Structure formats: C-alpha cells, structure tokens
Amino acid sequence: MLYEAAARQHFQLGKHAPAPEIAPFVEYYWTIHWNLPGDRSHRQWVIPHPTVHLVFDPAGSTVNGVMRGRFSRLLSGSGRVLGIRFRPGGFRPFLDGPVSQLTDRVIPLAEFLDTEAEEQARRALDIVEPAAMVASADEFLRPRLPAVDPMVAVVADLVRQIVDEPDLARVDTLADRVGMGRRTLQRLFAEYVGVSPKWVLLRARVHEAALRADEDAVDWASLAADLGYSDQAHLTRDFARVVGVSPARYARGCRRDASAERLRKPGTAIRE
C-alpha cells in the first residue's frame, strides 16, 4: 500500500495465517474494515506483488491476477473485504494452464468457479469477527484444494530471494545462482508466477524504495547504489513509472501523512 500513514486513518488492515493444509498454497488472508461517515471517502493506491489474490468483496468477488501497474480502490461508507493472498506460484495448481493467463485480469468468482462459490463468499462477508471470517476462508478453500505441486515451493523460494535481496539486479545472476538457464527461469515464472523474473526484480526494488521513503531523511543516491542501480536517475525513473510520482515527492507525502497521524494520536508510533 502506498502512503500507509494516511491509509491507517481510513481503514483497518489485518493479516491472518491459513490452516496448515492450506499454507502450501496461501501466504496469508487479509481483512479490511472501514467506516467513513457522511460523504467522506478515501482512494487507496497499491503497487502489486507477484501474487494472485482471491477477493471476497461486497461489490463482487473476484480472482485477481498479477497486476503489472498500480491500481486503486475508492472506499466510502462502511464495509469489509476478505482477501486470500496466494504464495508466488501457489495458484498454479488451481489452473489448467499458466498463471500468465490471469495477468492484468480481474475475473468474477462465479465465472471462474460457480455461483455457489459466489454465495459462499457473500456469506463470509456477513461475518463481522475477523477470526471467523478467516475460518470461513479455510472452509471455502479446503474442499477445493488440488494436489500439492512441489514446484510451488521452488518458485516461492526464487521470489523470496528476489524480495529479500532488492540489490539483486540481474536475471542472469539469479539464474546462475540456482543453476538454471535464463530462458528456463523465464518460462518457469510465466507458468507459475504470471510475470517475468525481470518484472519481479524491478518491483522488489521499487517496493524497497517506497518503504525507505518513510524514513525521516533519505539519501536517494546512496539508496540507488544499495539497490543495484548505476545511478540515482535510473531509480527515479523506475520509481516514477511504477508509483506515479518521483521518490522525493512520494517521501514528502509520507512525511505529511505521518505528521497528521501524530497530531491525531499523540504519543503513538508511526509503525505498528
């Protein structure tokens, strides 16, 4: 999520572990609750991760492939959403073909599965308590689980290496490390992740830069070097293309929102 301090003023986000038998496929469940009185509204922008999400939403439940561009959701009134974030590669066993067929697509749940699935999703949203909502997600997935695919763990580990090492700047470096050819790695990512390893590398660096922008003062030239860029201009260009504004402008917005949060809740920490 972009501008996290502002987001915390408008909705509550929770993350919850799935049941053990579901964990090979699902990274976590997430819940969002909001209550915006009167004519208040909030538009939340998100830069995506290389994961598929199944979203139980009162506006219509969906299967969301990896979105390669930023996207937003406008919140108003009150409501709640329950999401299932699959592990990188974790949705492939549910499909008859590569995950790339879902990339940049949002498919109605009833179209992807059946009308009963949509009804189950709607019933889950009738539940208020997050733990019970999570239990309903377990119940939704448990009878639909496919056989465990050992390649899911391999792919998830490849993505983890990229995310944990945002200075990992070249696909060839990763391919050499894991003993795969570059084209083999690209085919594996298309089949299981839905996007190329180069896309995942770039997005990991932008995510790290966005997280670091929350700090009081950022040396962007040093950060660019830390992330494996040859110069600051390349970081600025990638960041602006993904986030929509320059790193410096984004950092100013984060500081503004954090100051507003401190004024609203004196003595509380910015980060949970």
Score class of each variant (00 low, 15 high):
Q232K: 11
S259D: 10
G244W: 04
S222G: 14
R249W: 13
T268G: 12
A217F: 13
L235Y: 00
A248K: 07
L263D: 11
T268D: 11
A204V: 07
R264S: 06
R262E: 09
A240L: 03
V206I: 08
R255Q: 07
A209K: 06
R256E: 13
A210T: 14
K265E: 15
L223H: 02
V242E: 11
G194E: 07
E208G: 01
C254Y: 07
G244R: 06
L227R: 06
R241G: 10
K198H: 13
K198M: 15
P266I: 12
A240P: 09
Q232L: 10
D216K: 07
A260S: 09
R252K: 14
V200A: 08
A258V: 08
A210W: 10
D226E: 14
K265G: 13
S222E: 09
R252H: 15
S259N: 12
A248F: 01
W199Q: 09
V200T: 13
E261Q: 11
A209C: 04
A258S: 15
W220H: 01
R262P: 08
Y229S: 07
D219M: 00
A240C: 05
R249D: 12
A251W: 03
Y229M: 10
V193I: 09
D238I: 06
L211G: 10
D214L: 11
G228V: 02
V193E: 05
S196F: 00
A260W: 04
P247R: 07
V218N: 01
L223F: 03
P266Y: 10
A269E: 12
D238C: 05
V195K: 06
F239P: 00
G253Y: 00
A251K: 01
V200W: 03
A224R: 02
V243M: 04
L201R: 06
D231L: 11
L263G: 12
R203I: 07
A213Y: 05
A269G: 10
S230C: 15
R205K: 11
T236S: 10
R256N: 11
R212S: 01
V243I: 02
A217I: 13
H207S: 12
T236W: 13
A225N: 12
Y250M: 08
L211W: 13
V195H: 03
H234Y: 15
A233F: 06
V245C: 09
V193R: 01
V195Y: 04
L211K: 15
S246E: 09
Y250D: 08
V243T: 02
D214H: 14
R212T: 04
W220E: 08
D238E: 04
R237E: 09
A225I: 15
H234F: 10
L235P: 03
V193H: 00
L211E: 14
A221D: 11
Y229W: 13
V200D: 03
R264H: 09
D219P: 06
L235I: 01
Q232P: 11
R203H: 12
A248P: 08
V242N: 05
P266D: 09
T268K: 12
P197F: 00
G228P: 08
H234M: 14
V200M: 06
G244A: 07
A260L: 10
R241E: 15
S196G: 06
E215R: 07
